[in-house]
Simulated assay, not measured.
Amino acid sequence: MKTQRRSAFIPPCIPTLVDKPPEGDRWTHEIKYDGYRTQIHLAGGYARAFTRNGHDWSTKYAPVLGGARDLIHRDAVLDGEMVVQDETGRSDFKKLATAIRWENASLVFYAFDLLSVDGNDLRKQRCEDRRDRLHELIGDPRPISPIQFSQSFEGSGAEFFAAAEKMDLEGIVSKRKASIYRSGDSKDWLKTKAYITGEFVVIGYERKRGAAPSLLLAEETDARMRYVGRAIPAVPGAQRDELWQALEFLHTSHFATPIGAGNKAAVPVQPVLKVMAKHLKGEEKLRHATVTEILRP
């Protein structure tokens, strides 16, 4: 496969996180795929792939780039998400890193925007017009193709988000139909994410003046524990008092797993107390996380 011609990476448009999707016919909605943001460049028979931060991952995504060259016989820059899917067709973020390293033939690229075609910059065109041209370029879904068009939904954002939650998807992205493509944070693209509850081990805590107290949580894997972030206790007062007493009793001299350099005020505890925490789905680290239940060790 050809991957040698250089082309300029375009910093991506980043959707703003909101609590609920927008309504009205000025917006269109798509599934939010749980994967790695990827930009594919096709030029003169060459194909390259860039990560969200502009790193060249063409070798890692070689089968997908081969599929793109077979499907699209024009110069183009595509914006989308690289995913791996489970048996039901849902994107599975936890399997993605392994798939990239060992099974990259199982990767699928969902294209949701077209930034240029045949050397013509399309970023100043309306979002809905860019997507129409992208659909023409890719065509209707082909079950075995590693290149797919991200379908959109016209209608109530709340209804589409409810359907996405029911299907156990990460969430949705809503886009203003008339918007141009701007690199960086954008309020023309809005993401609404579902919440999920999981079980975690408490490995430490922080109680700083002027800030809500938080627990430092880790996720247990087959081989080790992995630090995943903070969560604010949201349990009744009596349980909260009991929690802090237990944590003071479990105080230890070092953390059971590395927590990073930005937690200088953190206090380590023995990793025996487990909790249930509600957090945004599809994030590598916990976001908007609250502890909803304390499990007895």
Rank of each mutant, 00 (worst) to 15 (best):
F9E: 01
P15F: 07
L17V: 09
V18N: 09
D19H: 12
D19C: 06
E23Q: 15
G24F: 13
D25E: 15
L42K: 07
Y46K: 02
A49W: 07
A49G: 12
T51N: 07
R52A: 10
N53Q: 10
H55Y: 08
L65Q: 01
G66R: 12
R69N: 03
R69W: 03
L71I: 05
I72P: 00
V77H: 00
V77S: 02
E81H: 05
T88M: 04
R90P: 00
L96Q: 00
T98P: 07
T98I: 05
I100Q: 02
N104A: 02
N104Q: 06
Q125P: 01
R130V: 00
L134F: 05
E136S: 02
A158K: 04
F160K: 06
F161C: 05
A162K: 08
M167Y: 12
K175S: 10
K175Q: 04
R176D: 12
K177H: 05
S186N: 09
T192P: 11
Y195G: 12
F200C: 13
V202Y: 10
E206D: 11
A211Y: 15
A212K: 15
A212S: 15
A212D: 14
L216Q: 03
Y227T: 06
G229C: 14
I232D: 04
I232V: 15
P236W: 09
D241L: 13
Q245F: 12
L250W: 05
G260K: 03
N263K: 12
A265I: 07
Q270L: 14
L273P: 01
H279F: 09
L286N: 00
L286R: 01
R287G: 13
P297A: 14
